[in-house]
Design a binder for these strands. Structure first.
Length: 290
DNA sequence: GTATACCCTGACTA
DNA sequence: ATAGTCAGGGTAT
């Protein structure tokens, strides 16, 4: 049994690997002992952070730097939105949180699963889809994991087979959206070239994609860092810290727009990074109701 | 443009 | 033990 060769990289800029992989932006990373294991681009990757060093297997250093957004100075990102004591406190507490460059296709399907679900449930749905339609990957220790299905492979699953993945009413959304994307291989390139608002409208044209899912895909799959997804946590936090929005009312389109416009104005072009930092310390603002 | 019932699963309560 | 309640985001009306 051959083990993959272990490489070492010393990041030039701050990195908090645990916060980055466990903050809810990704669903396929698992921590075993002190080592993170994930399947990315059909490859099994392991990562372990020890002091200033990052030990990794299964990918190139170049890939790792791009994937973890380590090609950008953390200070430049953070200084852009460090405009009040709440956000600077969050950055102080968990500095080095990174927004990972995800594959747009995997990101889109993952966040389509994420509607009306919590993280363990989302993880289950995605693992079910991978097992049903993804290529098997054998790890050095013999365990089997599965690549995220290609658009064609996911498209080939029947609606009933998709339902069998515990997708519930999301199954038809994923069925239709996968078909549309399998038929249009250039979809991601087109969206990438669009302005933020234009790309947002294009994403929301797919079945099952509303404002929240579109904003997540823009942020995590297309590196549109001004994107500010608003979920129930963000809404509670934005109300509590900045007095914007009313958590007593239902989260209507108008209410959602009010909150995200405020955040984009307040935090600027890296509003999405600010969102991740606030989300990461959400428990501090929880009063037991959440 | 805006409000609301409904879709489905899982976690929790009675 | 099992039924009932609720959270969660998007869509149709």
């Amino acid at each position: 049994m051959l083990a993959y060769e272990v490489w070492v990289y010393e990041p030039e800029y701050p990195l908090n690997l645990d916060a980055t992989l466990s903050c809810g932006q990704l669903f396929r990373w698992k921590k075993q002992e002190d080592t993170w294991e994930g399947v990315v681009d059909g490859k099994l990757i392991t990562l372990r952070q020890d002091g200033g060093k990052l030990y990794f297997t299964g990918c190139s250093e170049e890939f790792l730097i791009s994937y973890l957004h380590l090609d950008c100075a953390h200070d430049d990102i953070v200084s852009g939105f460090s405009c009040d004591s709440y956000i600077t406190d969050a950055v102080c507490r968990i500095g080095g949180l990174r927004i990972v460059r995800q594959d747009p296709w995997e990101c889109l399907i993952s966040y389509l699963c994420a509607q009306n679900a919590n993280i363990p449930f989302i993880t289950r749905m995605i693992e079910n889809l991978c097992r049903a339609a993804g290529k098997p990957i054998t790890a050095p220790d013999g365990t089997i994991r599965y690549a995220f299905p290609t658009p064609d492979a996911l498209c080939a699953l029947t609606l009933e087979e998709k339902r069998g993945c515990s997708l519930g009413y999301r199954a038809p959304y994923i069925h239709k959206t996968a078909a549309a994307i399998a038929a249009d291989p250039g979809w991601a390139d087109h969206i990438r070239k669009m302005s933020f608002e234009e790309a947002r409208r294009a994403l929301m044209a797919y079945p099952g994609i509303g404002p929240k899912v579109a904003d997540c895909v823009l942020l995590f799959g297309f590196q549109k860092y001004e994107s500010f997804p608003v979920d129930v946590w963000m809404r509670m936090i934005m109300h509590r810290l900045y007095g914007v929005g009313d958590p007593e009312k239902s989260l209507t389109t108008a209410e959602y727009e009010r909150i995200r416009r405020f955040a984009q104005e307040h935090f600027g072009p890296y509003a999405g990074y600010a969102q991740e930092y606030l989300f990461a310390i959400r428990e501090s603002y929880s009063d037991g109701k959440f």
